[in-house]
């Protein structure tokens, strides 16, 4: 255990991912999580299922998990300056006002992307990750090599996912604590003037809310449709 205050969220500069401030408590798994892990670990050990095959299957469905309420939160912040101010000052309350409440004691913080700053969240290992808001984290996202690389070389990791940011943009990498979960508020795509909240929400991807991607653009949507 380290000496940091357990309540402080922290920003990684170039420290090691192992320096991970999560307070002193142990972890908890739900009954269903326990049962799934128990069965899965036994089936894997006995060679009845291949863990990589399982990961590939889960990957197929990863965007289908959870309500992805974050897209509505982001779209509202894009259209309603008052809500945006609220979201950036008290994300837990602003998100709860839309009827999305997490577990008790869960504290959400929204990080605003601007032309100068791009935010990226790395801790998705456990219940830190607010999947009811963001959807399931990508399978690759949980791997230790990704985590440490994201901290040391966030631009390199993003480039692998096709996101290239100009050198002038500062990249900030955030790691959750037991008490704080992050939501990235991406920049509103250009050429969406006059779009409704519901239309805008279709542009908000899971990856844009964890900062490993950017929102879709109107032309992406046209391509998707054709």
């Amino acid at each position: 255990m380290n000496e940091k205050a357990p309540n402080a969220g922290h920003r990684h500069e170039h420290d090691d991912a192992a320096d991970h401030d999560h307070g002193d408590g142990g972890s908890e798994l739900s009954e269903m999580d326990l049962r799934v892990r128990a069965l899965e670990s036994l089936l894997v050990e006995k060679g009845y299922v291949d863990p990589q095959a399982l990961d590939i299957l889960i990957e197929t469905y990863e965007t289908k998990v959870g309500p992805h309420n974050g897209a509505r939160v982001v779209a509202k912040a894009w259209t309603d300056p008052e809500f945006k101010r609220w979201l950036l000052t008290d994300a837990s309350a602003a998100i709860a006002s839309l009827g999305y409440t997490g577990r008790q004691g869960e504290h959400m913080v929204a990080l605003e992307n601007t032309p100068q700053v791009h935010n990226m969240v790395v801790c998705t290992l456990c219940s830190c990750y607010p999947w009811p808001v963001l959807g399931l984290p990508p399978v690759w996202y949980k791997s230790a090599p990704y985590r440490s690389r994201a901290v040391i070389d966030p631009r390199g990791v993003m480039a692998e996912f096709g996101v290239r940011l100009p050198d002038s943009v500062e990249v900030r990498v955030w790691d959750s604590t037991a008490e704080i979960r992050y939501l990235v508020l991406p920049e509103r795509p250009a050429q969406t003037e006059g779009w409704s909240e519901a239309q805008l929400a279709t542009l908000v991807t899971r990856d844009s809310m964890i900062g490993t991607g950017l929102p879709a653009t109107p032309s992406d949507i046209v391509q998707r449709a054709s």
Partner: peptide, 23 residues
């Protein structure tokens, strides 16, 4: 577009059944 899940463990349970079926 296909199956939907309310929680990560649901997708895992689904995938396990699929994997066992496939073998």
């Amino acid at each position: 577009a296909g199956p939907v899940f309310k929680a990560p463990w649901e997708a895992q349970a689904f995938a396990m059944a699929l994997a066992l079926h496939e073998r």
